[in-house]
Computed example of a mutant assay.
Amino acid sequence: MLVYLGALFHLIALALLLDLVHKVRRLQRVVVGMYDLSQEESATLFRQIEALQGLYIDLGFKKSLPTTRGWAASPDFLMELARHALDEKPQVVVECSSGTSTLVLARCMQLNGGGMVYSLEHDARYAQETRAQLERHGLQDYAQVLFAPLNNYTVGSDTWQWYVHDVLPPLAQIDMIAIDGPPKDTGRLARYPAGPALFPRLAPFGTVFLDDAKREDERAILERWQKEFPRLTQSKRNCEKGCVVLRLSGAA
């Protein structure tokens, strides 16, 4: 009987030991995963600080910019917009949504000595805030924030909630488009209508910047645009939330 109890005790102890080893190994994996995630988050944060600092230096802002966290465009995406605008000097820029990106692009127009940014904004309060920021930075002559409520926009048998874009002035061609709206909670593939609504008005070598390109909806939108607008080449940029640049190959 004692031998049996001794063997049973050893089996129980062995089982407990194996369970403990399993838990320790699992804890090690969690700790290593947390460390890797922490390293990745730290590197991302550092890149955003670098990009934000670069914006202040390259664009010479004398006053602070609005927040670039949360729903706002990240500094690395804003830097992509600024570099393109300064290099290629677009005369007509259209934005889907407004905010810090409006200030950045308007400042580029000012530094370039000309050009105009037209921002479609469905939120009247936010549109007014962006106008106030433009005034604060002395950039009101280089950007117009257009109140554009979301309304039904139909392509084929599908309907989206998208900007009432007839608020845009008669534009012969658009040199640059920045897409960071509408918000994804307005419906599936919320930003798709920018393609049929605006891409046909792109100038030769006109360029489109799509923010949040890491999201599943945006990837699906890009696939659809690739089929419907084959003359637009697509290239990725290494941005926090994902950025894809579409460029028109030239004149038809």
Rank of each mutant, 00 (worst) to 15 (best):
Tyr35Ser: 14
Asp36Ser: 09
Asp36Asn: 10
Asp36His: 11
Gln39Gly: 01
Glu40Met: 12
Glu40Phe: 12
Glu41Gly: 00
Glu41Ala: 12
Ala43Gly: 01
Leu45Ala: 14
Leu45Cys: 06
Phe46Leu: 11
Phe46Gln: 11
Arg47Tyr: 08
Arg47Gly: 07
Arg47Met: 08
Gln48Phe: 05
Tyr56Val: 01
Ile57Asn: 10
Ile57Asp: 11
Ile57Met: 04
Asp58Val: 07
Leu59Asn: 01
Leu59Ile: 03
Pro66Leu: 02
Pro66Glu: 02
Pro66Ser: 06
Thr68Val: 15
Ser74Val: 14
Ser74Arg: 13
Ser74Asp: 10
Phe77Tyr: 11
Leu81Cys: 15
Leu81Arg: 05
Arg83Asp: 13
Leu86Val: 01
Glu88Leu: 07
Lys89Ile: 02
Val92Arg: 04
Val92Ser: 08
Val93Phe: 06
Val94Cys: 00
Cys96Asn: 03
Ser97Ala: 10
Gly99Glu: 04
Thr100Gln: 03
Ser101Lys: 01
Thr102Ser: 15
Val104Pro: 07
Val104Ala: 03
Ala106Cys: 02
Ala106Gly: 04
Ala106Val: 00
Cys108Leu: 08
Met109Trp: 07
Gln110Lys: 11
Leu111His: 05
Gly113Gln: 05
Gly114Val: 04
Gly114Met: 04
Gly115Arg: 09
Ser119Leu: 11
Ser119Asp: 06
His122Met: 08
His122Gln: 14
Arg125His: 15
Arg125Gln: 15
Tyr126Met: 13
Ala127Asp: 06
Gln128Ser: 15
Glu129Tyr: 14
Glu129Pro: 00
Thr130Ile: 02
Arg131Ile: 09
Arg131Asp: 14
Leu134Asn: 12
Glu135Gly: 06
Gly138His: 03
